[in-house]
Amino acid sequence: MSNIIHIKTPLMDDTTANLRIGNRVLISGIIYTARDAAHQRLVELAGQGKKLPFDVQNQIIYYVGPSPAQPGRPIGSCGPTTSYRMDVYTPQLLAMGLKATIGKGNRSDSVIEAMKQYKAVYFAATGGAAALLAKRVKRADVIAYQDLGTEAIMRLEVEDFPVVVANDIYGNDLFREGMVKYQNR
């Protein structure tokens, strides 16, 4: 495949500055999982001035609730969750240094503005490809909130995890551009 950008975590400003909507990206390194309930807990901890279970600085959070792992595999199917449910929490995490999120679907205007302000990006992962995405996970460890079951926070080691830049640090939105192009046909 041509025109694929390979990035490694943790993400730095120079990396996010070079990404544009529509870029196909392969991520290698460490990413973290979190969904609604975990996000609520993270924001509550931050509001109380307490330490989070992992340092979000320059990290990526993947919105996913993976299925149980089959024997010999680090993780079960792990397709993206709809992102807008985390929009209420995302600006605060971006302000704390989070550099990217991965999910499916579009983001709110407040999240897009926060991404511009904090030089963060939003990656879209392919919905319906959960089993294929799981093959890119080399290791998965629960690091917090085990009581949440599949929504516990996990530390994933990934290799060439495929995503597309849906929102860049410049305020561009792949979903909106796609709708405009479609309407102009």
Rank of each mutant, 00 (worst) to 15 (best):
A129I: 00
A129L: 07
A130E: 14
A130G: 14
A131E: 09
A131C: 03
A131Q: 13
L132K: 08
L132M: 13
L132E: 13
L132I: 14
L133T: 10
L133Y: 02
L133M: 11
K135V: 02
K135G: 14
R136I: 02
R136D: 05
R136Q: 12
R136W: 02
R136E: 03
R136C: 13
R136P: 00
V137T: 08
V137E: 03
V137A: 05
V137R: 03
V137I: 15
V137S: 07
K138Y: 00
K138N: 13
R139W: 02
R139H: 06
A140V: 07
A140G: 11
A140S: 15
D141G: 01
D141V: 12
D141N: 12
V142L: 06
V142F: 04
A144E: 05
A144L: 11
Y145E: 04
Y145Q: 06
Q146S: 15
D147Y: 13
D147Q: 14
D147R: 07
D147E: 15
L148H: 12
G149N: 09
G149S: 03
G149V: 01
T150S: 15
T150D: 13
T150L: 07
T150F: 02
T150C: 11
E151W: 09
E151V: 07
E151S: 02
A152H: 09
I153S: 10
I153Y: 01
M154R: 15
R155Q: 14
R155N: 07
R155S: 12
R155Y: 00
R155E: 15
L156V: 10
L156A: 10
E157R: 07
E157Q: 15
E157I: 04
E157N: 12
V158T: 06
V158A: 01
V158R: 08
V158L: 06
E159D: 14
D160S: 14
P162C: 11
P162F: 02
P162A: 00
P162K: 06
V163E: 14
V163H: 07
V163S: 08
V163Q: 00
V163P: 02
V164Q: 09
A166S: 14
N167T: 10
N167K: 06
D168C: 07
D168I: 08
I169Y: 02
I169H: 02
I169L: 04
Y170L: 09
Y170Q: 14
G171P: 13
G171M: 06
G171R: 08
G171I: 11
N172G: 04
N172F: 05
